[in-house]
Design a protein around this nucleic acid. Structure first.
Lengths: 111, 111
DNA sequence: TCTGCTCATCGTATATTTGCGATAAACTAA
DNA sequence: TTAGTTTATCGCAAATATACGATGAGCAGA
């Protein structure tokens, strides 16, 4: 892919918001997050029973959520326990709260 | 029973959240949304002055935000005025609020 | 008409994502 | 050691996403 010659200077916050949103931006990952956030901890094996996808595919999605910092993976042989990363989860909540709330100062008088 | 103002099918809710998150999941689109949401008035081609990217690329990103329902595009020859879609913006705010707040019922006792 | 302006779309190239089966890795228990 | 369990990673194919320049569509005014 061609990239811009200019260096786009995003504020860090914009990149953080985008990366989190990107991680959430898939129905399966939304489902996984909801399962982890609203119930007790899940293992990958339980997720494969709840989500009709190949185990390798679910593992990939879990990896994406891990990389985004939204979940943690605690090795507990022979299983791995995945949980919501509560600290980052609250940070994300605050970030998106501010992001959407920006609309409050919005005062369009050009229409 | 119904706790939100939204009348979204629960199975569809995951797809709605994912599609919105996907639209937000790019730094340029985050920047655009912030500009539209925080400025006093709506933007048109001024975006090309604020974002060092080709005009066609910015148009593509605007189209993505339009498809996600996050912004509106009002033709005002020879310009187009883009605004936050306030109704959907508030719906998105509510959706993500609920989504992150699900953590409250989270009670991990498996560690 | 013609010109200029703004924005959308097309065509292209490349990057990334997504999904699967197969297999490897790590550990436990027999 | 061997066998079984669970999860991660590899390799591949197909679909999407990203970015650009070039071009087209639409409108206003000369």
């Amino acid at each position: 892919m061609q990239r811009t010659l200019l260096t786009v200077d995003y504020s860090n916050e914009e990149e953080v918001i985008a990366s989190i949103a990107k991680a959430i931006g898939h129905p399966v990952r939304v489902k996984i997050l909801r399962l982890l956030a609203s119930q007790t901890c899940c293992f990958t094996g339980e997720l494969t029973e709840l989500i009709p996808m190949a185990q390798s595919t679910i593992s990939q999605h879990l990896k994406a959520l891990l990389n985004a910092g939204l979940i943690t993976g605690e090795i507990n042989p022979p299983k791995v326990r995945y949980c919501i990363d509560r600290e980052n989860w609250q940070k994300a909540q605050a970030l998106f709260g501010q992001f959407f709330i920006a609309d409050r100062e919005y005062n369009c008088d050009c229409g």
